[in-house]
């Protein structure tokens, strides 16, 4: 039985010895923070000209996470690469020969990558919040306000879950091109389209990113009829991730390497 500690140490060596880790995580953080700040500045300018109804449901916290829609794409790339690199290089054979317990191998690999994403995601979320609030001037929210800490912490969780979901999908699909080709349009386009067309909105809100992003809202939009709260939304996202992980685990167990 390969000891968990050994596999975890090895996975950490793998993750820190490739440049793509720094690039993808760095881009995710920078995009999320910078785009959030930019939108906060613009909102601060336009606030007086907004309709009263929108001003009432103004969510200073959520607006500082506006960059996450783009930043999450880099997180997806990270998640996919961490897993599919093993397959595209053929390293998976050496890895699985060294750790014949495939469940252990998968668990450790995802654990290391997820822990790293969680740290980066949480830091990104906090920085994005503070930087965004600094741009909002008088409109700013405070970490002590009701629901704000939950939203900021949730931002980190959201990024972590997006990455973990991507890893699980990559375990199932193995090919980086295939995984990215499905995940990127899914999160960047399809989810948005489904969520904005009235006929499909009720379906779209159960997609992992739409449900999960609810955790970052402090003020519920006025006309919202979403049937779940912030934690309920995160729960839906977790359910998606768990399902993908199970699928990946079963396939890895059964498949020839």
């Amino acid at each position: 039985m390969a000891a968990l500690g050994q596999v975890i140490r090895s996975e950490w060596t793998k993750i820190r010895s490739v440049r793509s880790t720094v690039w993808t995580l760095g881009i995710a953080a920078v995009l999320t923070i910078a785009l959030g700040m930019l939108i906060c500045i613009l909102t601060n300018h336009d606030f007086q000209s907004m309709p009263a109804r929108e001003r009432l449901s103004f969510d200073a916290t959520n607006i500082s996470f506006s960059g996450m829609g783009l930043g999450q794409l880099a997180m997806i790339v990270f998640g996919v690469l961490v897993v599919s690199n093993e397959y595209s290089t053929g390293m998976i054979r050496a890895s699985l020969a060294a750790v014949p317990q495939r469940g252990t191998f998968l668990f450790c690999k995802l654990l290391v990558a997820t822990a790293l994403v969680f740290v980066v995601g949480l830091a990104t979320s906090f920085v994005a919040f503070f930087a965004g609030q600094a741009m909002l001037g008088d409109l700013r929210a405070h970490l002590g306000d009701p629901g704000v800490l939950r939203a900021v912490f949730g931002g980190g969780l959201y990024m972590t879950l997006i990455a973990l979901f991507s890893m699980a999908v990559a375990v199932m699909l193995r090919s980086p091109m295939l995984s990215l080709g499905i995940l990127m349009p899914f999160f960047f386009l399809i989810s948005n389209i489904l969520g904005n067309v009235s006929a499909t909105r009720k379906v779209g809100r159960y997609l992992p990113d739409q449900a999960g992003s609810k955790i970052m809202q402090v003020v519920t939009p006025a006309n919202s009829d979403v049937p779940y709260g912030p934690w309920g939304g995160l729960g839906i996202m977790i359910a998606w991730t768990v399902a993908a992980l199970l699928g990946g685990y079963v396939l890895l167990k059964r498949r020839d390497a």
């Binding site: 090895s10 060596t13 010895s17 050496a94």
Partner: peptide, 28 residues
Amino acid sequence: VGALLDAKAVHGGRSARQHLLSLAQLSG
């Protein structure tokens, strides 16, 4: 048991030492 299955089964961005180190750590 040691095996060489595919010489190209290395992440191109990883150095030889890091590659071997990750495999060594995997097996303790």
